[in-house]
Amino acid sequence: MSAAWRILHKDLVLELRTREALSGLIVLMLLILLTFTFAMDPEGAGEAAPAVQWVTFVFAGLMAIQRAFLLERENGAWYGLLLCPIDRGAIFVAKMASNVIVLGLAQLVLVALLALLLGAPALAAPAAVLLVNFLGLIGFAALATLFAAISVRLRAREMMLPLLVLPLLVPLVICAVEASRVVMNGGSLASAGAWLRVLATFDVIFSVAGWMIFEQLVQE
């Protein structure tokens, strides 16, 4: 796992130096959120906050998630990575982790914006809201990181990533929206239990599957 940590560390250094991913992602989330608000009655928008939140998160996230692999493309650094004497699953772990960090930070801003702009009671039960967001974040990052590794190598990469990921994300979106709705309306975590269980299962299945399948995926 030290290899994964080293790759992650390098990616974070690059992100801090260029700040390409995070700043763009946050602005994009804000813009999608505003677009939603203008398309709805702002007074009743708080009601739709969970749905707005996750649709915003998923679409903005899909735009940002390929970056973890795109920064390996310049000068063919990707092949340098494959030459290293490491288990290639570690590359998946590192890329997923860097996506979790970048998306997670943007997600915190998104939740704050929801509370601010739509008056969503997102901060009523902060711990519960954080847990739901975290579970949704992990599953999204696992699945989208795996398919980003594929889409960056396709010609129509901007088009193919959403095509590949959105149908597979349906269970995550359903459960994340419903769980958010429960905890934002002051429900206990236990009352969102069924949704959270599916989310957690999703997270585990696709994190493990991504890690296991990655070696096969990068083989040429």
Partner: peptide, 20 residues
């Protein structure tokens, strides 16, 4: 990869759609 991941997703889709 897509076909394998797709089938792993089937039980999750089933459960979440039922709940939904």
């Amino acid at each position: 990869v897509l076909a394998v991941i797709g089938v792993l997703d089937v039980p999750l889709i089933q459960v979440s759609v039922r709940l939904w």
